[in-house]
Nucleic acid binder design. Sequence first.
DNA 1: GCCTTAAGTCAACAGGCATTGACATGAGGC
DNA 2: GCCTCATGTCAATGCCTGTTGACTTAAGGC
Lengths: 198, 198
Amino acid sequence: MPVAEVRTPQRAPGAIRRRDAEATRAAILDAARDQFGRLGYDCTALRDVAAAAGADVALIKRYFGGKEALFTEALKVSFRSDFLSDWDLRSFARDFATAMAGGPHEDAERTHSFQFLLRAATSPSTAPLLNAAIQERFLEPIRHWLGDADAPGRARALAAAAIGFLVERLIRGEALVGAERDAFIEHATAMFERLLGP
Amino acid sequence: MPVAEVRTPQRAPGAIRRRDAEATRAAILDAARDQFGRLGYDCTALRDVAAAAGADVALIKRYFGGKEALFTEALKVSFRSDFLSDWDLRSFARDFATAMAGGPHEDAERTHSFQFLLRAATSPSTAPLLNAAIQERFLEPIRHWLGDADAPGRARALAAAAIGFLVERLIRGEALVGAERDAFIEHATAMFERLLGP
DNA sequence: GCCTTAAGTCAACAGGCATTGACATGAGGC
DNA sequence: GCCTCATGTCAATGCCTGTTGACTTAAGGC
């Protein structure tokens, strides 16, 4: 499914260099993040990524090694490593629940990042890659966060629940309002508190 | 990504007919449901489906018309079986948590249709299906299930959590074992109970 | 037992994909 | 101004895909 999209190569502003490896690499990575996020791993063609970045396919091999390596790199960028450090453990439950309900002060960048991850998750070829990423950037921090003896299993449960809320938010599209929003936040908060509590 | 899987053609028991159009068609449809569910639309190769059904690729064209038509047919079948009616409200929390942990007694068939839908819906070509599927297959039944005044918001929270566990199971691939499994089940159970309780 | 026809088999086609190595070209050091 | 090497271009390769038409084979009525 092509959905090709012409995009001018993003060069460093001001300095107009017709040959700039760093800028080309960045443009490719940017286009890759975009297309992997919108189309998923399997439906993304390297030719289209290169075209969108205003570069040639062969440069992808040169700068990244191959499709899988490019995806891994894009995944690394999209997976905000500070995802968890943004939250305060004591108020995590309500903060997260409120964020997932949606509203005026929403973090669109985070949503986009997650869309990328969801697409990655549902593609069999990238599921192992994502699994590794979740291990490293999600489960490990949570385990460290919890610090219990049963942290591994508990971290997994917490991660699963969090993923679900992110997915649901993504699917839902619009923010919740009124009584449904209130009930959603209350129950989600209570649920996460139960998961985090003793 | 192939992951081919030999499967003896499922013929009608008793009557051994070497040539049975109906049985062949059913075997193909069955294999298609399996592979579309596990691999998604794009990663499923018709040759593999045919091989798994013990049939030839050309028969897919004859009996279904093409890949898309086969997918539509498989989707129709997977839609019919109801995901939630299988569960007992009183033991849902532990049953679901255990199922999501995975293991020897795992009822793969029960989560199958959801995986099918999730994969189908996150494939760019069939994306619009997702919202409708969630609405119809999760939110409505859960609302009816709960029956409370705050059912809508609560149902959404429950659906989100359940989706998360299904997705996490999907990403994880393998079943949990040992202490991690136990902790996972315990905390997940407690979490769902909190979400279902008063 | 033949004969028609449904059921199954086979090989080839056309298109798309990632990958790759050989080639061209521009930029900056000297 | 030249020379070198990083940077960019091009075309070909091999593999896999869905599709398709012509072929072979078995079943069941007569």
